[in-house]
Write a protein that binds this DNA or RNA. Structure first.
Length: 158
DNA sequence: GCCAACGTTGGC
DNA sequence: GCCAACGTTGGC
């Protein structure tokens, strides 16, 4: 069981879109970076928990929680000529790109990038590192617990 | 829309 | 296998 942070552009798939999706589940299509693909293909397991992060938007930050609901499988968009994720170099008999399925768990108050940066406990987070562009990054158990506690709200903890 | 950072491509 | 050029990411 591991923890992850997955970036999505809310214009494409937001936490609300995930909540409204059939079975509240979407395939995490469109990853075209080998390291991120390898995380999905080699390390992610069903049941792993995910911070759903909104990127490239007015308020970047963690917007909710999801979980991995299916192991890595072929990303169909690589063969779709009309998709922005089409990859003409990918062969049907040896697909280059894979993705897991992700299922909605809950929406949370946004924990913004600025807020994430405020906490010493989170300074090691990969997503906060200068120049980081990886769309999928592992989250340590202490980081997960720290953030989850904030997201669940001070009121509930009191 | 800018641009720093960094991954990928392709010529050699 | 080096590395310059190019393309993409993503915060601002």
């Amino acid at each position: 069981m591991q923890y992850w942070l997955m970036k999505s552009e809310p214009d494409e798939v937001s936490i609300d879109d995930l909540a409204k999706a059939p079975k509240q589940t979407v395939p995490w299509f469109g990853v075209r970076n080998y390291q991120a693909r390898n995380y999905m293909r080699d390390q992610m397991q069903v049941g792993d928990l995910v911070f759903f992060y909104h990127s490239s938007c007015p308020e970047p930050g963690i917007a909710g929680i999801a979980k991995v609901s299916a192991p890595a499988h072929t990303d169909d968009t690589q063969f779709d000529v009309k998709s922005p994720y089409y990859d003409k170099a990918s062969k049907k008999d040896s697909p280059r790109w894979a993705c897991v399925d992700v299922k909605f768990v809950q929406k949370t108050d946004l924990m913004s990038l600025d807020q994430l940066r405020e906490h010493k406990a989170l300074e090691g987070m990969i997503v906060l590192k200068r120049g980081n562009r990886l769309s999928i990054t592992p989250v340590s158990a202490p980081e997960w617990k720290f953030i989850a506690k904030k997201l669940m709200g001070v009121d509930l903890a009191a």
